[in-house]
């Protein structure tokens, strides 16, 4: 039986906007298994990004539990969450979020600087991660010297370099042309299929969702549809 990596139980998130309360997530329960490539879909304001942020430990629910590898991340304090994120989650953002003054190599190395690894081991891991995304020859380039697709692949390498079980991606192809988007999606798919990573991706694009193994549709903070995706 496949191992459950993420277990969400009765998760709710309510934002206060002045005197009005906005429900972003309403009593959501969900299991995500190891090696799944799950896409979260839905219109703007449906709660998909909020759900992703709570799973990734950068936001907190109003109620409910979110267990990642049997650890309730909603119970961790700020510093514990920071450490946990570093060791367990890889992030890919829509806007790449690379540090402009650091080279591709240095950007990918950033999460490793928080570990106990020595310099040579860090170098080896960074090179491997850049190899996986096909950018080993661009390691000394600054982000501004790379194309959008290459920047996003560097961001994926940064997400992989600590070897996390969970990779979360928030509309990773939103700022890319179709060719670059395809490259990025294939890398994410490869991570799920070949490396056994659990990938959770928020997207608006049904074509992007087609690269996943499972798709969840949210609307008004509730799960609307949960379906397996035919292999592409």
């Amino acid at each position: 039986m496949p191992e459950t990596v993420v277990a969400i139980r009765n998760l709710s998130k309510i934002y206060a906007q002045g005197e009005i309360q906005v429900t972003a997530l309403n009593d959501v329960s969900l299991d995500i298994e190891m090696g799944e490539f799950l896409t979260l879909m839905g219109p703007s304001g449906s709660g998909k990004s909020t759900l992703l942020h709570i799973i990734a430990g950068i936001d907190r629910p109003t109620s409910g539990r979110c267990l990642v590898q049997n650890l309730d991340v909603t119970g961790l304090n700020e510093s514990e969450l920071a450490d946990w994120r570093n060791q367990n989650v890889g992030f890919v953002f829509q806007t790449f979020n690379l540090i402009p003054v650091l080279t591709a190599f240095e950007n990918v190395e950033l999460p490793l600087l928080l570990t106990q690894l020595d310099r040579s081991e860090r170098r080896r891991r960074v090179q491997t991660a850049l190899d996986i995304v096909g950018l080993a020859d661009r390691m000394h380039h600054l982000p501004k010297q790379l194309s959008g697709g290459q920047e996003q692949r560097v961001a994926i390498a940064r997400a992989l370099v600590t070897d996390p079980r969970l990779v979360v991606a928030d509309e990773p192809t939103g700022n890319l042309d179709s060719h670059s988007a395809q490259e990025v999606l294939m890398v994410l798919q490869q991570l799920s299929r070949e490396a056994g990573k659990t990938v959770i991706m928020v997207t608006h694009d049904p074509k992007a969702a087609a690269y996943g193994s499972r798709s969840i549709h949210l609307e008004k903070g509730e799960l609307l549809k949960d379906e397996a995706v035919t292999a592409r």
């Binding site: 920071a82 994120r85 570093n86 992030f91 979020n97 402009p100 928080l114 940064r158």
Partner: peptide
Amino acid sequence: TREIGTLRVLGYRR
């Protein structure tokens, strides 16, 4: 600001 947010996400403490 976004850069600092990114660093925090990557695990850097305040």
